[in-house]
């Protein structure tokens, strides 16, 4: 269970870190005025600073939030059930290539569903990458990654 307060704090820390990084890395570009006009870092520096200050405000303000539950345990389970396989899918792309990873991902998420028969899951897992191939690789000449596996197979 995660309370709204924790979420607010986590988000404020996230945006604040981003703001600080932006402001600090802008210093390299110069934040003043030179013969070439306003220097490249001036604007990002200002923006980074605003993000940082805004995040600090949100951080402090989050203490005023009631500690009410924002994500319940059931929510969390549903969330992870979607996100984890998705992350695994994305992580597998460089290795398996887009097509094999897509097939494996579809098969994986459909096979655990009691409502979906094995055969149906297999059909979806086969048809999705095939359609991707036809539309992207074949029709519009957009090459999707073939992965290490593709290289081994010479595809």
């Amino acid at each position: 269970m995660i309370s709204r307060r924790v979420l607010e704090i986590a988000t404020a820390v996230l945006t604040g870190t981003f703001g600080a990084t932006v402001a600090i890395s802008s210093l390299d570009n110069g934040i003043g005025w030179s013969t070439a006009g306003v220097e490249a870092g001036a604007f990002p520096f200002l923006v980074g600073l605003i993000i940082l200050l805004g995040s600090l405000y949100n951080l402090v303000r989050s203490r005023l939030d009631p500690p009410q539950v924002s994500i319940t345990r059931a929510d969390m389970r549903a969330l992870l059930a979607l996100f984890l396989p998705a992350a695994a899918f994305v992580a597998a792309i460089p290795l398996l290539g887009m097509y094999v990873a897509t097939a494996a991902y579809m098969l994986g998420v459909l096979a655990v569903r009691p409502a979906v028969s094995r055969l149906k899951a297999l059909v979806y897992a086969g048809v999705t990458p095939l359609l991707l191939y036809l539309v992207f690789e074949w029709a519009f000449q957009v090459s999707l990654p073939h992965g290490v596996l593709g290289e081994i197979l010479g595809f």
Binding site: F18, V22, N29, A40, G48, I51
Partner: peptide, 22 residues
């Protein structure tokens, strides 16, 4: 303040990469 943070993050994202003017 949240609007301001969101807007500024957008500006920062737009600034990533090569700057036209410099």
């Amino acid at each position: 303040i949240k609007t301001l943070v969101s807007l500024s993050i957008g500006f920062a994202i737009a600034a990533i990469g090569i700057d036209t003017v410099s």
